[in-house]
Design a binder for these strands. Structure first.
Length: 573
RNA sequence: CGGGGCGUAGCGCAGCCCGGUUAGCGCGCAUCGUUCGGGACGAUGAGGCCGGAGGUUCGAAUCCUCUCGCCCCGACCA
Protein backbone atom coordinates (compact mmCIF):
# COMPACT_ATOMS: atom_id res chain seq x y z
CA UNK A 1 0.00 0.00 0.00
CA UNK A 2 1.16 3.48 -0.82
CA UNK A 3 0.67 5.96 1.98
CA UNK A 4 -0.13 8.64 -0.57
CA UNK A 5 -3.23 6.67 -1.51
CA UNK A 6 -4.15 5.16 1.86
CA UNK A 7 -6.82 6.36 4.22
CA UNK A 8 -4.69 6.30 7.36
CA UNK A 9 -5.53 9.59 9.02
CA UNK A 10 -2.97 9.97 11.80
CA UNK A 11 -3.52 12.60 14.43
CA UNK A 12 -0.82 14.53 16.22
CA UNK A 13 -2.90 15.55 19.19
CA UNK A 14 -4.25 13.16 21.77
CA UNK A 15 -8.02 12.90 21.55
CA UNK A 16 -9.61 14.49 24.60
CA UNK A 17 -12.14 11.77 25.33
CA UNK A 18 -9.70 8.88 25.32
CA UNK A 19 -8.55 7.61 28.68
CA UNK A 20 -6.44 4.56 28.13
CA UNK A 21 -3.45 4.15 25.88
CA UNK A 22 -4.96 1.72 23.41
CA UNK A 23 -7.90 4.03 22.83
CA UNK A 24 -5.68 7.05 22.30
CA UNK A 25 -3.35 5.21 19.97
CA UNK A 26 -6.08 3.57 17.95
CA UNK A 27 -7.50 7.02 17.24
CA UNK A 28 -4.12 8.66 16.69
CA UNK A 29 -2.87 5.90 14.39
CA UNK A 30 -5.98 6.24 12.25
CA UNK A 31 -7.26 2.74 13.07
CA UNK A 32 -10.76 3.78 14.00
CA UNK A 33 -13.18 6.62 14.55
CA UNK A 34 -16.06 6.90 16.93
CA UNK A 35 -19.57 7.05 15.55
CA UNK A 36 -21.45 7.11 18.86
CA UNK A 37 -21.06 5.95 22.43
CA UNK A 38 -19.33 2.57 22.30
CA UNK A 39 -19.73 2.34 18.53
CA UNK A 40 -16.76 2.61 16.18
CA UNK A 41 -15.91 2.56 12.51
CA UNK A 42 -12.80 0.53 11.82
CA UNK A 43 -10.69 2.30 9.23
CA UNK A 44 -8.53 0.28 6.84
CA UNK A 45 -5.57 0.04 9.19
CA UNK A 46 -7.67 -1.06 12.16
CA UNK A 47 -9.56 -3.58 10.09
CA UNK A 48 -6.33 -5.02 8.81
CA UNK A 49 -5.20 -5.82 12.35
CA UNK A 50 -8.61 -7.28 13.19
CA UNK A 51 -8.36 -9.49 10.12
CA UNK A 52 -4.93 -10.72 11.16
CA UNK A 53 -6.18 -11.71 14.59
CA UNK A 54 -9.23 -13.35 13.01
CA UNK A 55 -7.01 -15.28 10.66
CA UNK A 56 -4.94 -16.69 13.48
CA UNK A 57 -8.13 -17.64 15.30
CA UNK A 58 -9.54 -19.32 12.18
CA UNK A 59 -6.41 -21.30 11.56
CA UNK A 60 -6.22 -22.55 15.12
CA UNK A 61 -9.94 -23.26 15.46
CA UNK A 62 -9.96 -25.17 12.21
CA UNK A 63 -6.84 -27.00 13.29
CA UNK A 64 -8.76 -28.09 16.39
CA UNK A 65 -11.51 -29.45 14.21
CA UNK A 66 -14.03 -26.67 14.74
CA UNK A 67 -16.18 -25.56 11.82
CA UNK A 68 -16.96 -21.99 10.95
CA UNK A 69 -20.49 -20.80 10.28
CA UNK A 70 -22.23 -17.45 10.46
CA UNK A 71 -25.39 -16.74 12.39
CA UNK A 72 -27.53 -13.64 12.03
CA UNK A 73 -27.02 -10.73 14.36
CA UNK A 74 -30.78 -10.31 14.50
CA UNK A 75 -32.55 -12.74 16.82
CA UNK A 76 -36.27 -13.27 17.08
CA UNK A 77 -37.52 -12.99 20.66
CA UNK A 78 -39.06 -16.47 20.69
CA UNK A 79 -35.78 -18.28 21.24
CA UNK A 80 -34.82 -15.94 24.04
CA UNK A 81 -38.20 -16.43 25.64
CA UNK A 82 -37.82 -20.17 25.33
CA UNK A 83 -34.52 -20.15 27.19
CA UNK A 84 -35.87 -17.70 29.73
CA UNK A 85 -33.22 -15.12 29.02
CA UNK A 86 -35.64 -12.65 27.45
CA UNK A 87 -36.70 -11.81 31.00
CA UNK A 88 -33.39 -12.43 32.73
CA UNK A 89 -30.87 -10.75 30.46
CA UNK A 90 -31.60 -7.17 31.42
CA UNK A 91 -31.14 -4.02 29.44
CA UNK A 92 -27.86 -5.12 27.97
CA UNK A 93 -29.92 -7.09 25.49
CA UNK A 94 -30.81 -4.61 22.78
CA UNK A 95 -34.49 -5.14 21.97
CA UNK A 96 -36.77 -3.66 19.40
CA UNK A 97 -39.76 -4.42 17.23
CA UNK A 98 -39.91 -4.89 13.49
CA UNK A 99 -42.60 -3.39 11.20
CA UNK A 100 -44.97 -6.19 12.09
CA UNK A 101 -44.58 -5.35 15.75
CA UNK A 102 -42.67 -8.55 16.46
CA UNK A 103 -39.98 -8.55 19.13
CA UNK A 104 -36.34 -8.89 18.19
CA UNK A 105 -32.96 -8.55 19.82
CA UNK A 106 -29.44 -7.92 18.60
CA UNK A 107 -27.35 -10.93 19.51
CA UNK A 108 -25.07 -10.33 22.50
CA UNK A 109 -24.12 -14.02 22.35
CA UNK A 110 -25.57 -16.95 20.44
CA UNK A 111 -26.26 -19.92 22.71
CA UNK A 112 -29.96 -19.92 21.87
CA UNK A 113 -29.48 -19.63 18.14
CA UNK A 114 -26.86 -22.33 17.84
CA UNK A 115 -28.77 -24.65 20.15
CA UNK A 116 -31.90 -24.23 18.05
CA UNK A 117 -29.89 -24.99 14.95
CA UNK A 118 -28.31 -28.11 16.34
CA UNK A 119 -31.64 -29.20 17.79
CA UNK A 120 -33.13 -29.37 14.34
CA UNK A 121 -30.10 -30.72 12.49
CA UNK A 122 -28.51 -33.29 14.79
CA UNK A 123 -30.48 -36.33 15.91
CA UNK A 124 -27.93 -39.00 16.68
CA UNK A 125 -24.94 -39.55 18.92
CA UNK A 126 -23.19 -40.64 15.73
CA UNK A 127 -23.08 -36.99 14.65
CA UNK A 128 -21.36 -35.90 17.86
CA UNK A 129 -19.26 -34.23 19.00
CA UNK A 130 -19.36 -31.09 16.93
CA UNK A 131 -17.79 -27.71 17.52
CA UNK A 132 -19.18 -24.72 15.60
CA UNK A 133 -17.86 -21.20 15.65
CA UNK A 134 -18.36 -17.83 14.07
CA UNK A 135 -16.54 -14.53 14.01
CA UNK A 136 -19.11 -11.85 14.07
CA UNK A 137 -20.26 -8.52 15.42
CA UNK A 138 -21.93 -8.68 18.80
CA UNK A 139 -24.08 -6.03 20.37
CA UNK A 140 -24.41 -5.45 24.09
CA UNK A 141 -26.06 -2.27 25.21
CA UNK A 142 -23.46 -1.59 27.88
CA UNK A 143 -24.65 0.67 30.63
CA UNK A 144 -21.49 2.69 30.33
CA UNK A 145 -19.29 2.07 27.34
CA UNK A 146 -15.74 3.26 27.90
CA UNK A 147 -12.09 2.74 27.15
CA UNK A 148 -12.63 2.77 23.40
CA UNK A 149 -13.01 -0.65 21.96
CA UNK A 150 -12.19 -2.26 25.33
CA UNK A 151 -15.73 -1.87 26.57
CA UNK A 152 -17.69 -1.03 23.48
CA UNK A 153 -21.33 -1.76 22.74
CA UNK A 154 -20.62 -3.19 19.33
CA UNK A 155 -17.58 -5.41 19.01
CA UNK A 156 -16.19 -8.33 17.08
CA UNK A 157 -16.17 -11.66 18.81
CA UNK A 158 -15.30 -15.22 18.00
CA UNK A 159 -17.78 -17.50 19.69
CA UNK A 160 -17.69 -21.28 19.51
CA UNK A 161 -20.17 -23.81 20.81
CA UNK A 162 -19.49 -27.49 21.19
CA UNK A 163 -22.06 -30.28 21.51
CA UNK A 164 -21.39 -33.62 23.16
CA UNK A 165 -23.10 -36.81 24.19
CA UNK A 166 -21.51 -36.78 27.65
CA UNK A 167 -19.30 -34.79 30.00
CA UNK A 168 -16.25 -36.87 29.20
CA UNK A 169 -16.44 -35.71 25.61
CA UNK A 170 -17.07 -32.13 26.72
CA UNK A 171 -14.05 -32.18 28.98
CA UNK A 172 -11.88 -33.45 26.18
CA UNK A 173 -13.06 -30.62 23.96
CA UNK A 174 -12.64 -28.11 26.78
CA UNK A 175 -9.05 -29.18 27.17
CA UNK A 176 -8.48 -28.92 23.44
CA UNK A 177 -9.99 -25.45 23.34
CA UNK A 178 -7.84 -24.45 26.29
CA UNK A 179 -4.78 -25.50 24.36
CA UNK A 180 -6.07 -23.84 21.21
CA UNK A 181 -6.56 -20.55 23.04
CA UNK A 182 -3.07 -20.81 24.42
CA UNK A 183 -1.77 -21.25 20.87
CA UNK A 184 -3.88 -18.36 19.57
CA UNK A 185 -2.76 -15.82 22.13
CA UNK A 186 0.82 -16.96 21.85
CA UNK A 187 0.70 -16.50 18.10
CA UNK A 188 -0.75 -13.04 18.63
CA UNK A 189 2.42 -12.21 20.56
CA UNK A 190 0.65 -11.56 23.84
CA UNK A 191 1.69 -12.12 27.42
CA UNK A 192 -1.32 -13.73 28.97
CA UNK A 193 -2.51 -15.99 31.73
CA UNK A 194 -5.36 -18.47 31.82
CA UNK A 195 -7.08 -18.07 35.16
CA UNK A 196 -9.74 -19.96 37.05
CA UNK A 197 -12.86 -17.88 37.17
CA UNK A 198 -16.30 -17.67 38.60
CA UNK A 199 -18.91 -19.31 36.45
CA UNK A 200 -21.45 -16.86 37.81
CA UNK A 201 -25.15 -17.25 37.34
CA UNK A 202 -24.75 -19.09 34.04
CA UNK A 203 -24.05 -22.29 35.94
CA UNK A 204 -21.65 -24.97 34.88
CA UNK A 205 -18.74 -26.15 36.90
CA UNK A 206 -15.63 -25.09 35.17
CA UNK A 207 -14.40 -22.02 33.42
CA UNK A 208 -11.14 -20.37 32.62
CA UNK A 209 -10.68 -16.81 31.50
CA UNK A 210 -7.71 -15.79 29.40
CA UNK A 211 -6.27 -12.50 30.51
CA UNK A 212 -3.75 -10.36 28.74
CA UNK A 213 -1.54 -8.91 31.44
CA UNK A 214 -1.65 -5.12 31.42
CA UNK A 215 -1.94 -2.40 34.00
CA UNK A 216 -5.04 -1.00 32.36
CA UNK A 217 -6.81 -4.31 32.91
CA UNK A 218 -10.22 -4.19 34.50
CA UNK A 219 -9.78 -7.34 36.54
CA UNK A 220 -7.42 -8.42 39.27
CA UNK A 221 -5.64 -11.75 39.08
CA UNK A 222 -4.07 -13.64 41.97
CA UNK A 223 -1.39 -16.09 41.04
CA UNK A 224 1.57 -18.11 42.13
CA UNK A 225 3.87 -20.38 40.19
CA UNK A 226 1.22 -23.05 39.71
CA UNK A 227 -2.04 -21.25 40.34
CA UNK A 228 -3.93 -18.32 38.82
CA UNK A 229 -7.47 -17.15 39.43
CA UNK A 230 -9.55 -14.04 39.10
CA UNK A 231 -9.72 -12.22 42.39
CA UNK A 232 -13.43 -12.86 42.85
CA UNK A 233 -12.89 -16.58 42.45
CA UNK A 234 -9.45 -17.14 43.96
CA UNK A 235 -9.00 -19.09 47.13
CA UNK A 236 -5.89 -19.19 49.17
CA UNK A 237 -4.88 -19.85 52.70
CA UNK A 238 -4.94 -16.94 55.06
CA UNK A 239 -1.79 -16.61 57.06
CA UNK A 240 -2.56 -16.91 60.77
CA UNK A 241 -1.81 -13.76 62.67
CA UNK A 242 0.27 -14.32 65.75
CA UNK A 243 0.45 -11.05 67.59
CA UNK A 244 -3.03 -11.17 69.01
CA UNK A 245 -3.01 -8.39 71.54
CA UNK A 246 -5.84 -9.94 73.53
CA UNK A 247 -4.82 -12.41 76.17
CA UNK A 248 -6.22 -15.89 75.96
CA UNK A 249 -8.22 -17.32 78.75
CA UNK A 250 -9.68 -14.02 79.87
CA UNK A 251 -13.38 -14.32 80.51
CA UNK A 252 -16.14 -12.82 78.47
CA UNK A 253 -16.59 -9.19 79.33
CA UNK A 254 -19.28 -6.78 78.16
CA UNK A 255 -17.92 -3.31 77.48
CA UNK A 256 -19.89 -0.10 76.97
CA UNK A 257 -18.95 1.22 73.52
CA UNK A 258 -21.32 4.09 72.74
CA UNK A 259 -21.68 4.78 69.00
CA UNK A 260 -18.67 2.62 68.19
CA UNK A 261 -19.71 0.55 65.18
CA UNK A 262 -17.21 0.07 62.39
CA UNK A 263 -14.27 -2.28 62.58
CA UNK A 264 -11.86 0.67 62.63
CA UNK A 265 -13.77 2.40 65.42
CA UNK A 266 -13.93 -0.73 67.55
CA UNK A 267 -10.26 -1.56 67.01
CA UNK A 268 -9.39 2.03 67.90
CA UNK A 269 -11.55 1.93 71.01
CA UNK A 270 -9.94 -1.26 72.31
CA UNK A 271 -6.51 -0.22 71.03
CA UNK A 272 -6.02 -3.48 69.13
CA UNK A 273 -5.39 -4.40 65.50
CA UNK A 274 -8.43 -4.98 63.29
CA UNK A 275 -7.54 -8.67 63.01
CA UNK A 276 -8.39 -9.08 66.70
CA UNK A 277 -12.05 -8.48 65.86
CA UNK A 278 -14.61 -10.98 64.73
CA UNK A 279 -16.82 -9.18 62.26
CA UNK A 280 -20.41 -10.42 62.19
CA UNK A 281 -22.39 -9.82 59.02
CA UNK A 282 -26.05 -10.64 58.73
CA UNK A 283 -26.88 -11.95 55.27
CA UNK A 284 -30.03 -12.77 53.47
CA UNK A 285 -29.32 -15.94 51.53
CA UNK A 286 -32.17 -17.16 49.35
CA UNK A 287 -35.00 -16.75 51.89
CA UNK A 288 -33.20 -17.25 55.16
CA UNK A 289 -31.23 -14.99 57.43
CA UNK A 290 -27.81 -16.15 58.52
CA UNK A 291 -24.75 -14.74 60.20
CA UNK A 292 -21.36 -14.88 58.55
CA UNK A 293 -18.31 -14.25 60.73
CA UNK A 294 -15.00 -13.12 59.41
CA UNK A 295 -11.78 -11.82 60.84
CA UNK A 296 -11.90 -8.05 61.23
CA UNK A 297 -9.21 -7.29 58.68
CA UNK A 298 -10.82 -9.28 55.86
CA UNK A 299 -13.77 -8.79 53.52
CA UNK A 300 -16.56 -11.13 52.53
CA UNK A 301 -16.67 -12.42 48.96
CA UNK A 302 -20.34 -12.63 48.12
CA UNK A 303 -19.83 -14.72 45.01
CA UNK A 304 -18.24 -17.37 47.22
CA UNK A 305 -21.37 -17.28 49.37
CA UNK A 306 -23.46 -17.67 46.23
CA UNK A 307 -21.46 -20.70 45.25
CA UNK A 308 -21.47 -22.22 48.71
CA UNK A 309 -25.19 -21.81 49.22
CA UNK A 310 -25.92 -22.51 45.57
CA UNK A 311 -28.08 -19.47 45.06
CA UNK A 312 -27.69 -16.22 43.14
CA UNK A 313 -29.69 -14.44 45.84
CA UNK A 314 -27.18 -13.30 48.41
CA UNK A 315 -27.33 -9.85 49.92
CA UNK A 316 -26.64 -8.07 53.17
CA UNK A 317 -29.78 -8.14 55.32
CA UNK A 318 -31.77 -4.94 55.58
CA UNK A 319 -31.82 -2.94 58.78
CA UNK A 320 -35.11 -4.39 59.98
CA UNK A 321 -33.97 -8.00 59.57
CA UNK A 322 -30.76 -7.20 61.43
CA UNK A 323 -32.70 -5.69 64.32
CA UNK A 324 -34.95 -8.71 64.48
CA UNK A 325 -32.01 -11.10 64.47
CA UNK A 326 -29.72 -9.24 66.87
CA UNK A 327 -32.12 -7.11 68.94
CA UNK A 328 -29.67 -4.28 68.46
CA UNK A 329 -28.85 -1.40 66.14
CA UNK A 330 -26.82 -2.15 63.04
CA UNK A 331 -23.16 -2.29 64.01
CA UNK A 332 -23.45 -4.31 67.21
CA UNK A 333 -24.08 -7.80 65.89
CA UNK A 334 -22.12 -10.65 67.39
CA UNK A 335 -22.28 -14.44 67.45
CA UNK A 336 -22.78 -14.85 71.20
CA UNK A 337 -26.35 -15.78 71.94
CA UNK A 338 -27.43 -15.43 68.33
CA UNK A 339 -30.24 -17.77 67.31
CA UNK A 340 -29.79 -17.69 63.53
CA UNK A 341 -27.35 -20.13 61.88
CA UNK A 342 -23.74 -19.01 62.23
CA UNK A 343 -21.21 -19.63 59.50
CA UNK A 344 -17.61 -18.58 59.90
CA UNK A 345 -14.98 -17.82 57.36
CA UNK A 346 -11.86 -19.95 57.57
CA UNK A 347 -9.93 -16.83 58.60
CA UNK A 348 -11.33 -17.47 62.11
CA UNK A 349 -10.03 -21.00 62.29
CA UNK A 350 -7.46 -21.22 65.04
CA UNK A 351 -8.40 -17.83 66.40
CA UNK A 352 -8.41 -18.20 70.15
CA UNK A 353 -10.02 -15.02 71.28
CA UNK A 354 -11.58 -11.93 69.79
CA UNK A 355 -13.86 -8.94 70.14
CA UNK A 356 -17.42 -9.03 68.84
CA UNK A 357 -20.62 -7.07 69.00
CA UNK A 358 -22.80 -7.90 71.99
CA UNK A 359 -26.15 -7.92 70.19
CA UNK A 360 -27.04 -4.96 72.32
CA UNK A 361 -26.87 -1.38 71.13
CA UNK A 362 -23.68 0.38 72.29
CA UNK A 363 -22.05 -2.75 73.73
CA UNK A 364 -19.27 -5.09 72.60
CA UNK A 365 -17.88 -8.29 74.08
CA UNK A 366 -14.22 -8.63 74.85
CA UNK A 367 -12.50 -12.03 75.25
CA UNK A 368 -14.90 -13.98 73.09
CA UNK A 369 -13.70 -17.55 72.59
CA UNK A 370 -15.01 -19.28 69.47
CA UNK A 371 -16.50 -22.75 70.05
CA UNK A 372 -16.83 -21.94 73.76
CA UNK A 373 -18.88 -18.77 73.77
CA UNK A 374 -20.73 -19.59 70.55
CA UNK A 375 -21.04 -22.44 68.10
CA UNK A 376 -20.18 -22.27 64.45
CA UNK A 377 -22.34 -24.40 62.19
CA UNK A 378 -19.72 -24.58 59.49
CA UNK A 379 -16.40 -23.05 58.57
CA UNK A 380 -16.46 -21.95 54.93
CA UNK A 381 -14.22 -20.11 52.49
CA UNK A 382 -16.06 -16.82 52.29
CA UNK A 383 -13.34 -14.19 52.16
CA UNK A 384 -11.84 -12.19 49.34
CA UNK A 385 -8.36 -13.57 48.80
CA UNK A 386 -5.60 -11.09 48.31
CA UNK A 387 -1.93 -10.84 47.58
CA UNK A 388 0.08 -12.16 50.49
CA UNK A 389 -2.24 -15.07 51.21
CA UNK A 390 -0.71 -18.49 50.70
CA UNK A 391 -1.41 -20.54 47.63
CA UNK A 392 -3.69 -23.55 48.18
CA UNK A 393 -1.33 -25.95 46.47
CA UNK A 394 2.06 -24.70 47.60
CA UNK A 395 3.65 -22.50 50.22
CA UNK A 396 4.09 -19.63 47.81
CA UNK A 397 2.50 -16.33 48.59
CA UNK A 398 -0.12 -15.23 46.07
CA UNK A 399 0.84 -12.26 43.96
CA UNK A 400 -1.49 -9.84 42.28
CA UNK A 401 -1.58 -8.37 38.79
CA UNK A 402 -4.10 -6.81 36.44
CA UNK A 403 -5.49 -8.37 33.32
CA UNK A 404 -7.74 -7.73 30.35
CA UNK A 405 -10.15 -10.57 29.75
CA UNK A 406 -9.81 -11.48 26.10
CA UNK A 407 -11.18 -15.00 26.08
CA UNK A 408 -13.10 -17.50 28.11
CA UNK A 409 -13.72 -21.21 27.88
CA UNK A 410 -16.78 -22.57 29.56
CA UNK A 411 -18.43 -25.88 30.29
CA UNK A 412 -22.09 -25.08 29.91
CA UNK A 413 -23.50 -28.51 30.53
CA UNK A 414 -27.14 -28.94 29.58
CA UNK A 415 -28.48 -25.54 30.62
CA UNK A 416 -29.44 -24.41 27.14
CA UNK A 417 -30.09 -27.78 25.59
CA UNK A 418 -32.53 -28.61 28.38
CA UNK A 419 -34.27 -25.26 28.23
CA UNK A 420 -34.62 -25.45 24.46
CA UNK A 421 -35.35 -29.19 24.39
CA UNK A 422 -32.37 -29.89 22.21
CA UNK A 423 -31.70 -33.60 22.45
CA UNK A 424 -30.21 -36.49 20.53
CA UNK A 425 -30.75 -40.24 20.52
CA UNK A 426 -27.95 -42.01 22.34
CA UNK A 427 -26.60 -45.45 21.53
CA UNK A 428 -29.08 -47.15 23.85
CA UNK A 429 -32.00 -45.38 22.19
CA UNK A 430 -32.59 -42.96 25.03
CA UNK A 431 -33.05 -39.28 24.34
CA UNK A 432 -30.53 -37.02 26.05
CA UNK A 433 -29.92 -33.27 26.07
CA UNK A 434 -26.71 -32.18 24.40
CA UNK A 435 -23.87 -31.48 26.76
CA UNK A 436 -22.50 -28.14 25.68
CA UNK A 437 -19.40 -26.00 25.95
CA UNK A 438 -18.86 -22.45 24.78
CA UNK A 439 -15.68 -20.60 24.00
CA UNK A 440 -15.36 -16.89 23.29
CA UNK A 441 -12.62 -14.52 22.20
CA UNK A 442 -13.09 -10.78 22.05
CA UNK A 443 -11.34 -9.99 18.78
CA UNK A 444 -11.46 -6.21 18.94
CA UNK A 445 -10.60 -6.30 22.60
CA UNK A 446 -7.61 -8.49 21.82
CA UNK A 447 -6.37 -5.84 19.41
CA UNK A 448 -6.70 -3.16 22.10
CA UNK A 449 -5.03 -5.45 24.65
CA UNK A 450 -2.07 -5.96 22.31
CA UNK A 451 -1.58 -2.20 22.22
CA UNK A 452 -1.93 -1.85 25.98
CA UNK A 453 0.82 -4.39 26.30
CA UNK A 454 3.12 -3.14 23.62
CA UNK A 455 3.66 0.56 23.02
CA UNK A 456 6.00 3.38 23.90
CA UNK A 457 5.87 7.16 23.95
CA UNK A 458 5.99 7.27 20.15
CA UNK A 459 3.14 4.91 19.45
CA UNK A 460 2.17 1.32 18.93
CA UNK A 461 4.68 -1.52 18.72
CA UNK A 462 2.87 -4.35 16.95
CA UNK A 463 3.82 -7.94 17.52
CA UNK A 464 4.95 -9.09 14.08
CA UNK A 465 2.14 -11.59 13.66
CA UNK A 466 -0.70 -9.09 13.94
CA UNK A 467 0.99 -5.98 12.57
CA UNK A 468 -1.15 -4.38 9.86
CA UNK A 469 2.01 -4.08 7.76
CA UNK A 470 5.29 -5.83 8.38
CA UNK A 471 7.56 -3.34 6.71
CA UNK A 472 7.40 0.34 5.90
CA UNK A 473 9.69 1.72 3.21
CA UNK A 474 10.75 5.30 3.78
CA UNK A 475 12.36 7.13 0.88
CA UNK A 476 13.38 10.29 2.67
CA UNK A 477 14.15 12.60 -0.21
CA UNK A 478 11.17 12.99 -2.50
CA UNK A 479 13.21 14.97 -5.01
CA UNK A 480 15.78 12.28 -5.52
CA UNK A 481 14.51 10.14 -8.39
CA UNK A 482 17.06 7.44 -7.82
CA UNK A 483 15.99 6.80 -4.26
CA UNK A 484 12.29 6.99 -5.16
CA UNK A 485 12.83 4.44 -7.88
CA UNK A 486 14.82 2.24 -5.60
CA UNK A 487 12.08 2.44 -2.96
CA UNK A 488 9.48 1.51 -5.55
CA UNK A 489 11.59 -1.46 -6.58
CA UNK A 490 12.04 -2.94 -3.15
CA UNK A 491 8.41 -2.19 -2.34
CA UNK A 492 7.37 -4.30 -5.32
CA UNK A 493 9.86 -7.04 -4.58
CA UNK A 494 9.07 -7.35 -0.89
CA UNK A 495 5.36 -7.38 -1.69
CA UNK A 496 5.99 -10.21 -4.14
CA UNK A 497 7.69 -12.08 -1.30
CA UNK A 498 4.35 -11.82 0.58
CA UNK A 499 5.37 -9.29 3.10
CA UNK A 500 2.74 -6.66 3.90
CA UNK A 501 4.54 -3.54 2.85
CA UNK A 502 3.72 0.11 3.21
CA UNK A 503 5.50 2.65 1.03
CA UNK A 504 5.63 6.18 2.36
CA UNK A 505 5.71 7.94 -1.00
CA UNK A 506 4.27 11.15 0.36
CA UNK A 507 6.08 14.34 -0.48
CA UNK A 508 6.70 15.40 3.09
CA UNK A 509 9.59 15.99 5.44
CA UNK A 510 11.47 12.96 6.78
CA UNK A 511 10.61 13.73 10.38
CA UNK A 512 6.91 13.30 9.68
CA UNK A 513 7.54 9.96 7.98
CA UNK A 514 9.49 8.67 10.95
CA UNK A 515 6.90 9.87 13.43
CA UNK A 516 4.04 8.29 11.51
CA UNK A 517 5.91 5.02 11.04
CA UNK A 518 6.50 4.84 14.80
CA UNK A 519 2.92 5.80 15.61
CA UNK A 520 1.57 3.08 13.33
CA UNK A 521 3.88 0.61 15.01
CA UNK A 522 5.19 -1.11 11.87
CA UNK A 523 7.83 -3.62 13.07
CA UNK A 524 10.45 -2.91 10.41
CA UNK A 525 11.45 0.33 8.72
CA UNK A 526 13.57 0.39 5.60
CA UNK A 527 15.14 3.82 5.28
CA UNK A 528 16.37 5.01 1.92
CA UNK A 529 18.24 8.24 2.33
CA UNK A 530 21.69 9.59 2.84
CA UNK A 531 23.23 6.23 3.65
CA UNK A 532 22.27 4.96 0.21
CA UNK A 533 23.50 7.96 -1.76
CA UNK A 534 26.64 8.41 0.33
CA UNK A 535 27.65 4.88 1.32
CA UNK A 536 25.54 2.70 -0.95
CA UNK A 537 23.84 1.16 2.10
CA UNK A 538 20.23 0.52 3.00
CA UNK A 539 19.19 1.15 6.55
CA UNK A 540 16.90 -1.25 8.40
CA UNK A 541 15.45 -0.18 11.72
CA UNK A 542 13.47 -2.28 14.16
CA UNK A 543 10.53 -0.62 15.84
CA UNK A 544 10.77 -2.62 19.01
CA UNK A 545 14.20 -1.48 20.14
CA UNK A 546 15.32 0.99 17.50
CA UNK A 547 18.17 -1.30 16.53
CA UNK A 548 19.58 -0.25 13.17
CA UNK A 549 21.36 -2.28 10.52
CA UNK A 550 23.06 -0.97 7.42
CA UNK A 551 23.24 -3.51 4.64
CA UNK A 552 24.30 -3.68 1.04
CA UNK A 553 21.34 -3.67 -1.36
CA UNK A 554 22.06 -7.23 -2.44
CA UNK A 555 21.84 -8.39 1.17
CA UNK A 556 18.58 -6.60 1.95
CA UNK A 557 16.20 -9.53 1.60
CA UNK A 558 18.26 -11.96 3.62
CA UNK A 559 18.72 -9.32 6.32
CA UNK A 560 14.95 -8.76 6.42
CA UNK A 561 14.39 -12.49 6.57
CA UNK A 562 16.67 -12.77 9.57
CA UNK A 563 14.99 -9.95 11.42
CA UNK A 564 11.56 -11.40 10.72
CA UNK A 565 12.64 -14.78 11.98
CA UNK A 566 13.96 -13.17 15.13
CA UNK A 567 10.74 -11.22 15.64
CA UNK A 568 8.67 -14.35 15.16
CA UNK A 569 10.76 -16.34 17.62
CA UNK A 570 10.60 -13.66 20.28
CA UNK A 571 6.83 -14.06 20.18
CA UNK A 572 7.13 -17.66 21.33
CA UNK A 573 9.80 -17.09 23.93
C1' C B 1 -30.76 5.49 36.97
C1' G B 2 -28.22 9.40 40.53
C1' G B 3 -24.28 13.21 40.58
C1' G B 4 -20.87 16.37 37.74
C1' G B 5 -19.10 18.39 33.07
C1' C B 6 -19.09 19.53 27.81
C1' G B 7 -21.45 20.63 22.67
C1' U B 8 -18.38 27.29 18.97
C1' A B 9 -14.25 25.59 11.55
C1' G B 10 -11.99 18.70 10.07
C1' C B 11 -9.40 18.25 15.29
C1' G B 12 -8.12 20.69 20.12
C1' C B 13 -9.88 24.99 22.54
C1' A B 14 -10.98 30.59 24.05
C1' G B 15 -15.18 33.91 24.10
C1' C B 16 -20.56 33.04 27.71
C1' C B 17 -20.60 35.31 34.45
C1' C B 18 -21.36 41.06 32.91
C1' G B 19 -26.02 40.52 25.74
C1' G B 20 -23.96 45.27 21.55
C1' U B 21 -19.29 46.23 15.01
C1' U B 22 -17.08 41.60 10.71
C1' A B 23 -16.99 35.23 16.59
C1' G B 24 -11.21 34.38 17.83
C1' C B 25 -6.59 31.11 18.70
C1' G B 26 -3.48 26.57 17.82
C1' C B 27 -3.20 22.22 14.73
C1' G B 28 -4.82 20.55 10.09
C1' C B 29 -6.26 22.04 4.86
C1' A B 30 -5.14 25.05 -0.07
C1' U B 31 -1.53 28.18 -3.04
C1' C B 32 3.50 30.22 -3.39
C1' G B 33 8.53 30.56 -1.70
C1' U B 34 12.53 28.88 1.45
C1' U B 35 13.62 24.23 3.85
C1' C B 36 14.43 18.64 3.79
C1' G B 37 17.52 12.12 8.58
C1' G B 38 12.91 12.50 13.80
C1' G B 39 5.96 16.03 13.72
C1' A B 40 10.16 23.14 9.67
C1' C B 41 9.46 28.55 8.55
C1' G B 42 7.27 32.82 6.07
C1' A B 43 3.36 34.94 3.10
C1' U B 44 -1.57 34.49 1.31
C1' G B 45 -6.25 32.02 1.56
C1' A B 46 -10.61 28.81 2.21
C1' G B 47 -13.48 26.97 5.94
C1' G B 48 -18.90 28.57 11.26
C1' C B 49 -27.05 28.51 10.73
C1' C B 50 -21.91 28.97 18.06
C1' G B 51 -25.83 20.86 18.83
C1' G B 52 -31.46 21.60 17.90
C1' A B 53 -36.34 24.00 19.12
C1' G B 54 -38.86 27.72 21.58
C1' G B 55 -38.75 32.19 24.55
C1' U B 56 -36.90 37.16 26.78
C1' U B 57 -34.84 41.61 24.26
C1' C B 58 -34.28 47.04 19.82
C1' G B 59 -30.36 43.27 19.68
C1' A B 60 -28.61 36.40 21.88
C1' A B 61 -22.78 32.08 21.00
C1' U B 62 -23.76 34.90 25.62
C1' C B 63 -29.93 35.19 29.61
C1' C B 64 -34.43 31.56 30.37
C1' U B 65 -37.19 26.85 29.15
C1' C B 66 -37.31 22.35 26.69
C1' U B 67 -34.75 18.79 23.84
C1' C B 68 -30.77 15.79 21.54
C1' G B 69 -25.79 14.07 21.79
C1' C B 70 -21.10 13.18 24.17
C1' C B 71 -17.65 12.61 28.45
C1' C B 72 -16.44 11.59 33.71
C1' C B 73 -17.76 9.51 38.79
C1' G B 74 -21.12 6.18 41.10
C1' A B 75 -24.88 2.53 41.21
C1' C B 76 -25.98 -1.61 37.85
C1' C B 77 -24.64 -5.80 34.84
C1' A B 78 -21.29 -11.03 33.16
Amino acid sequence: MRLSEALIPTVKETPSDAEIISHKLMIRAGMMRKLGAGVYTYLPLGLKVIRKVEQIIREEMNRAGAQELLMPILSPAELWQESGRWDVYGKELMRFKDRHDRDFALGPTHEEIITALVRSEIRSYRQLPVNLYQIQTKFRDEIRPRFGVMRAREFVMKDAYSFHRDTASLEKCYKLMFETYTRIFKRCGLHFKPVLADSGAIGGDKTHEFHVLADAGESEILYSSDYAASSEYASGRIQPIKNNSLKEGGSLEKIYTPGIKTVEEVAGFFKVETHCLIKTLIYKVANSIIAVLIRGDREINESKLQRHFKTPFVELADEQSIRTATHADVGFAGPVGLSIPIYADVSLKGMEVGITGANETDYHFKNVHPDKDFTVREYIDAHISKAGDLCISSDDELKSCRGIEVGQVFQLGTKYSSALHAAFDDEDGSEKPFVMGCYGIGVTRTVAAAIEQSHDKDGIIWPYSIAPYHIIVLPLNSDDHASIQYAEKIYAELSALHYDVLLDDRDIRPGVKFKDADLLGIPIKIVIGKSLSAEGLIEIKKRIDGETFKVLPENLFSAIENIVRELEISVHE
